[in-house]
């Protein structure tokens, strides 16, 4: 069922992580992703993983919930792993026909997979602990300085709010249309590539029309509720930096230092 997709979902809570300003969390998540690419050895990954699990522990989001989200992207991770295993040159460990596994390949594949897993969990921690509205408010505020050079920060944030809101709705809509056309004898499974692509038309057109209908009705509903752009808008929950955010900032700088140091740690062992 489409309702199971956790990616981009919010897990309600009142933990220290939930209470952080969304801007802190956005910067933190971005920094973490960049730092994952700074890491180049086992110790670095161990530290990065430990830090992430510490955050998860503090946030009190159940691990089950987080890993359920991972299953959706499992294929991508597996694919990256296999590509890396076979395509990197180096000390040969095993060879058969055109397939060669090298020590370096195995290492690279392992690192790449771990990096991906941490990256996905790290970024889903942002959405799991931040309400969509806070997330987009944070983004709007972070982008505000750029509005002077023409970046429409409020509109971008609103678009994100609506996108997050309507992903489940459109997925359900797609599900319904697919079933309705299947009931009329559409066959999605057999035939060559062109036939299969053609069988998508009866789904895409109704989906398109539905999306326009939804957009039109939503626009009307928003107008009826006095929406007229970002000017003069207030917020129910103004986002504010607190003491916790200062501490988080200190921890983030500390983490960056440790990660950079970890690059040299490998040489010591």
């Amino acid at each position: 069922m489409v309702r199971d997709i956790t990616l981009g979902q919010y897990y309600p809570g009142k933990s220290a992580v939930h209470r952080l300003d969304s801007r802190t969390k956005i910067i933190g998540a971005l920094a973490y992703i960049v730092e994952l690419f700074v890491v180049n050895n086992f110790w670095g990954f161990l530290i990065a993983a430990a830090a992430l699990f510490a955050v998860i522990a503090v946030s009190k989001v159940p691990l089950k919930f987080i890993f359920k989200g991972l299953t959706a992207v499992f294929l991508i991770i597996a694919f990256t792993f296999i590509i890396n295993v076979f395509l990197v040159d180096g000390r040969v460990l095993w060879h058969w026909w055109i397939f060669t596994i090298t020590y370096e390949g195995l290492q690279r594949a392992f690192f790449m997979a771990v990096r991906l897993v941490l990256l996905i969990i790290g970024s889903s921690m942002l959405t799991l602990t931040t309400k969509p509205i806070e997330l987009t408010d944070g983004l709007e505020k972070l982008l505000k300085p750029f509005s002077k050079i023409g970046v429409p920060s409020h509109e971008i944030a609103l678009m994100m709010t609506i996108a997050l809101r309507f992903i489940p709705t459109l997925m359900e809509e797609t599900d319904k249309i697919i079933k309705a056309q299947e009931a009329r004898g559409t066959d999605f499974e057999s035939g060559n590539l062109i036939q299969r692509a053609k069988s998508l038309i009866p789904i895409l057109i109704p989906l398109f029309i539905s999306s326009f209908r939804i957009a039109q009705e939503l626009a009307l509903a928003m107008e009826a509720r006095c929406y007229h752009g970002g000017e003069g808008r207030t917020r129910m929950n103004e986002i504010h930096f607190h003491r916790g955010d200062a501490w988080a900032g200190v921890l983030m700088v500390l983490f960056l230092a440790v990660i950079i140091a970890s690059r040299y740690l490998g040489a010591l062992f």
Partner: peptide, 17 residues
């Protein structure tokens, strides 16, 4: 099976294309 059993969903007009 689909030939034998026709199913008209709720709001079937949304499947016209």
């Amino acid at each position: 099976v689909r030939r034998k059993v026709g199913l008209v969903f709720q709001y079937p007009e949304y499947q016209l294309f």
